[in-house]
Each structure stands twice: as C-alpha cells, then as structure tokens.
Amino acid sequence: MNAVTLAWRALRHTPLASSLNLLLVAIGIAMMTFILAVSAQLEERAERDATGIDLVVGAKGSPLQLILSSVYHADIPTGNIPEGTLAALAAQPLVKSTIPLALGDNFHGFRIVGSTTALAGHYGARLAQGSLFTQPMQAVFGARAARETGATLGASFAGSHGLAAGGELHQHAPYTVVGILQPTGSVVDRLILTPVASVWQVHETDPDEQAAGSVAAPAAPPERELTAVLVQYASPLAAIYLPRWVNSQARLQAAQPAFEAARLFNLLGVGIDVLRAIAAGVLLVAALSLFVALYGALEERQWDMAILRTLGASPFKLLRLLLAQGLLLSLAGAAIGWLLGHAGIGILESMQDLNLQPWRILAAEAWLPVIAAAVGLLAAAIPAARAYRTDIAATLARP
C-alpha cells in the first residue's frame, strides 16, 4: 500500500477536521483566483476600449468622469459642448481623426450613442446582420445589446430618456433596427449606434420639450450640442499642444484616457492589494489549521506509527505519509478553490455588465497549485519530521 493510499485513509478517519482544512484552503485559493482573473480582465478591457483614443474633449468637470462616460460608457457625462467643437478640432493640423458622441437616451439600459459609422470601425466591429445606418432614426445594435433586448432587423423601438432604464419613453420618435454587429469583446458590444442627427431629432421634436420652450419663445433656435469628441493624434507633438489649446476654451476640457485609466487602476490597486492580503491571510490560517490537525493526529496515532515501523515501514515512509496528507488536502483544496473562484466570476458577470470571461485561464493562475502545495508541505513538515524520528521502543513501552 503506497503513501497516497494510506494518507487518503488517514484523512477519511478524521472527516470533520479534514473537511474544515479543505474548506480553508479552497476559500483562500478561490479568493486569489477571483482577484487575479477579475483585475487582469478589467485592466485588459480598459486598455482595449481606450486603444486608439488619444484625447477626449468634453464639457468642463471631472476628467475621470469624462473618460468613464465617453470611452467606457460607465458614468454620466460632464455636460454638453457646442456642435462647432467638432469642426474646430478637425481643422487642427495635429488631429488625425475625430469621432463625435451624443448621449442622452437608452433602450432597456443599453446606451443609445449618436455618432458616425467610424465608431464601429474604430473597434473593428463587423456586421452580423443588416447594414450600417445611412440616415437619422436608424440604429445598429452591438452584439450584447441585441442579444439581451431581442432586437431583430426591421423592428422599431423607442428610446428612454436618460442613461439608465426606466426613463420617459420617446414614443414620438421611434428608431428602426438596420444592423446587428458581431461580438468584439469591446465596449461597442453593449451600445446602440445611431447618427448624431437622430439624437437631435428625438429631443427637438419631443412634444414636452417643445411645450416648455414655447413659453419662453426664444428668438433664435438653440445651438445644437454634442456630448464629447474622441480624438486621435496626427503627431506626438499633439500630446503637448492640443490639450493646452482645448483647456484654454471657455466650455471645453481635455482628458487623456491613458492617464486617467492609469490613475483609476492605481486607486483600485490599493483595494486589490488589500484583497490579496486577505486571501494570503486565509491561506496562512489554513496552513496553521492544517499543521494543528496533522500534529494532533500524529499525537493520537503514535502507537500506529510505531506498529508500522515494527512491520517494516521505514522512517522515510512515515515522512512521506504525513507529507502526502498535507499535499492531498492542499491540492484538493486548490482544485475546489479554482472552480469556486471562476464560478464567482461567472456570477459577477451575470449580475454586472463587465464583459468578463468566467472560465478563461490566466498564466498567473499556474502559481496557485504551487502555492497550495507549498502551504500543505509547510504545514506537514514538522509533524512529518517528528514521525520520521519516532522512537519505536519508547512509544510501545508506554502504558
């Protein structure tokens, strides 16, 4: 009978202690798996969504809020800017390309984004069905937005006021679905794209807004506005001069996605480090608990160990027996913890729109079984060393 079989039977002899130790190891590994996978995927997604966007021009306010609302579509905008800002930026020799954004409405919680077809092209989105929009009040759905709303080609829908579900419906200006995009793994998957003119038309023809405006009877029609403009530099010099020029304008501010994303992840990094420390603490507690269990089991089974020695078991075999118990518990706990960690990512993805891949395996996860094995071996080291030095005569002579 080999050491692994003996170790398994020994663990089965103390089911409660073994189960508790297994659970502690599993919780620690699950926390580490969850933290590693979620933080890595969120950072990758942030970099992917901001790729090719060197500058965001929007209304004055928080630069981070401007980036979150215009690049990641995860916050409310800082305000609106004049329509003429787009032409002014496009005329700058330091600007390679511009993409306008007009926000304000949603459909079942998915944002309706007024823009140009260049926004879909920027993220490498391809059509799964239909075509891109060519005129106002046509809409193209991202893959996730189409899947969760049940959008089909030719269907009509009305947007809700605001960027969260539950706002007032704009029944007077329905959109028509003309296209559905293939999945890209980027932010465009959860957007509904339409021409900027659609957003203007919806609000300019809103009976409630017209009624409110008729009271004041303005002499001239209000200036049309955008929410933000995404800018790509034509030259590295633009990073020096263009933000300064934008910030000198009375209503405009410039925010750099790379800088703001780095600042955001630095802030989040503190919390992630704390969670990692907690997970390491749980593993340390698991190691101590495993040590106490194995040491206690050795105290209770000294007679059995001595009998094994008299039957021909070498000291090295007793050493391997205790080490095998520690390894079995730690590696089994690692396997269960890995499954729990990835299942937790799946639950998080079902609750939050984070575009996570629950069962994607990261290279960093290869260290988790090694860490678990080290925990098991360290916990079993002292009991195993004591078993190795078992004095047969002294043990059997005890009453």
Score class of each variant (00 low, 15 high):
I81A: 13
S69P: 11
L319F: 13
Q253V: 05
R144G: 01
G109E: 09
S214R: 07
A261T: 15
A155D: 06
Q256I: 12
L275P: 04
A3W: 10
M305W: 05
L230N: 02
I272M: 10
V187Q: 11
G344W: 08
F157P: 03
L290A: 04
R48P: 00
T5H: 08
I99L: 04
G326K: 07
V375P: 02
V140W: 04
R111T: 11
A293C: 02
P63L: 05
F291Q: 06
V282P: 06
A287G: 09
A17C: 03
M351H: 13
N247Y: 12
A324G: 02
A219P: 00
L396Y: 04
L55D: 03
F133R: 00
P222F: 09
A277I: 11
G150A: 09
V375A: 10
I240P: 02
M305T: 12
S330A: 15
L36D: 02
E365D: 09
R190T: 14
E204F: 08
S289Q: 08
S330P: 09
V285H: 03
S314I: 05
T33Y: 02
R48S: 10
V38A: 06
L226K: 10
V215K: 05
S62M: 14
G326V: 07
L298F: 14
A255K: 01
G296H: 12
S289H: 08
L103D: 08
L268W: 03
A286V: 06
N247G: 11
L193V: 07
A59C: 11
I180E: 08
E83I: 11
V274F: 14
W367H: 01
T116N: 06
L68P: 01
A280P: 01
T149R: 00
S156A: 15
H108E: 14
R276P: 02
Y388F: 15
R398E: 11
P218N: 00
A343T: 15
V140M: 02
G142D: 06
S39E: 06
A393M: 07
S198F: 02
H73F: 15
A385N: 01
V71S: 00
A228F: 05
N21Q: 07
G121S: 13
V246L: 08
I371E: 06
T51R: 15
Q352H: 14
I81K: 13
P195W: 12
I345L: 14
G376A: 07
M137R: 14
P15H: 08
A332F: 12
S115M: 00
S186V: 00
D54P: 07
V95Q: 00
S131M: 12
A280E: 03
L252E: 05
G179Q: 08
P63I: 11
S160P: 01
Q249W: 11
G104H: 03
L68I: 01
T33I: 08
N247E: 12
A146W: 14
L68D: 10
I382L: 13
A7K: 09
I53D: 00
S235M: 11
L11R: 00
T194P: 00
E204R: 02
Y295K: 00
P383R: 05
V38T: 13
F259Y: 14
